[in-house]
Simulated scan of single mutants.
Amino acid sequence: MTLAVQWTDARLLHALEEVVERELDRHLGVAKEWMPHEYVPWSQGRDFDGVMGGEAWALEQSPVSDVARVSLVVNLLTEDNLPSYHHEIATMFGRGGAWGTWVHQWTAEEGRHSIVMRDYLLTSRAVDPVALERARMSHMAAGFESDNSHSMLHSVAYVAFQELATRISHRNTGHHSGDPICDRMLARIATDENLHMVFYRNLLQAALELAPDEAMRAVADVVTGFRMPGHGMPGFERAAAQIALGGIYNLRIHHDDVIQPVLRYLKVLDLPGLGPEGQRAQEELGLFLGGLDSQATRFDERRAALLARREAARAEKSQV
């Protein structure tokens, strides 16, 4: 009689070390070096008011759309909390071996995102710099604590979905910005986020092969309770509603472009050989996805109706 393996975090970290090393080598082989300063329109910059005695910020100076301005602030504040994210994953994954090397590599790459976004926003005067700094102070002072602290598998599962969600959010913000410079910058960031997603997705795939019941439970918990990492920032709910209505990130996009691609790649709903706990998690996940799709459809209908009313109101106003 073969005893079932008790997969503690420590045992899983050791068992997956070789996979992390392989994925790290692959990542370093495909990741391209890029320079944040090359994506910033420095020639557009000028002094602000305050100690430099320049020109105060005004809304009409912003080159981006209203919804993109909201999304850019949310995305930057999310990136700003990198010290807290680093603490979370370094504490969970460790600072030694291949795990530690990846943690530091990921942190260094993510750091470029906040650098280039802030430089772009201030140089182009896309957002109110005073409001941005106050929001940064408030958000970073609160820190970040993961919703998925149950196990290291929950952490791996979360980032596999979260990195793709972040990629989609950045890319769609660029498309809706109305500024080609902003679009190009966010496309560059999105490329990084996609590579990070691939790393964690492949690691999650290896975990599903190694500890299928435990990994399936982690995937089900993460998908059914998913929240973006910036959920604790000031005004997040209102901003999220504007972003959803604007077509940058909403339930339909979350279902179709984030959750489903990862699950299909991993063949999670068709994974055989599960024990009772894994089967329960798989069934819970299937039921949840059906409900999420229905919620997304209802959101699409409400969004279309609201946008139609707004368009009709604009048309009526223009005729007056």
Score class of each variant (00 low, 15 high):
residue 4 A to E: 13
residue 9 D to P: 10
residue 10 A to Y: 11
residue 12 L to W: 10
residue 24 L to W: 12
residue 25 D to M: 08
residue 25 D to K: 14
residue 33 E to N: 12
residue 37 H to P: 03
residue 44 Q to S: 14
residue 52 M to C: 05
residue 53 G to A: 02
residue 55 E to Q: 13
residue 56 A to V: 05
residue 56 A to Y: 01
residue 64 V to N: 03
residue 65 S to D: 08
residue 66 D to H: 09
residue 69 R to V: 04
residue 73 V to Y: 06
residue 85 Y to E: 00
residue 86 H to A: 10
residue 94 G to H: 06
residue 97 G to N: 05
residue 102 W to M: 02
residue 102 W to D: 04
residue 105 Q to L: 13
residue 108 A to F: 02
residue 108 A to N: 10
residue 111 G to C: 01
residue 116 V to A: 01
residue 116 V to S: 03
residue 117 M to E: 02
residue 117 M to S: 01
residue 120 Y to Q: 00
residue 122 L to V: 11
residue 133 E to V: 08
residue 136 R to D: 01
residue 143 G to L: 07
residue 145 E to H: 14
residue 148 N to Q: 12
residue 157 A to H: 10
residue 171 R to V: 03
residue 171 R to S: 15
residue 176 H to S: 10
residue 180 P to L: 10
residue 182 C to L: 11
residue 189 I to E: 00
residue 190 A to E: 04
residue 198 V to T: 12
residue 198 V to W: 05
residue 199 F to I: 05
residue 200 Y to W: 15
residue 200 Y to H: 14
residue 203 L to H: 09
residue 206 A to M: 02
residue 207 A to M: 03
residue 208 L to K: 04
residue 208 L to S: 07
residue 209 E to M: 07
residue 213 D to L: 00
residue 216 M to S: 08
residue 233 M to R: 15
residue 234 P to V: 01
residue 238 R to C: 10
residue 238 R to A: 15
residue 238 R to Y: 08
residue 240 A to D: 11
residue 241 A to C: 06
residue 242 Q to L: 15
residue 249 Y to R: 07
residue 250 N to G: 15
residue 251 L to T: 03
residue 256 D to I: 07
residue 256 D to H: 08
residue 257 D to S: 13
residue 257 D to Q: 15
residue 259 I to A: 12
residue 266 L to P: 10
residue 266 L to C: 09
residue 268 V to Q: 02
residue 268 V to T: 14
residue 273 G to F: 01
residue 278 G to Q: 01
residue 282 Q to E: 03
residue 283 E to Q: 14
residue 284 E to P: 00
residue 285 L to G: 08
residue 288 F to E: 07
residue 289 L to T: 05
residue 296 A to W: 12
residue 297 T to F: 12
residue 299 F to S: 01
residue 303 R to T: 08
residue 314 R to Y: 11
residue 315 A to E: 14
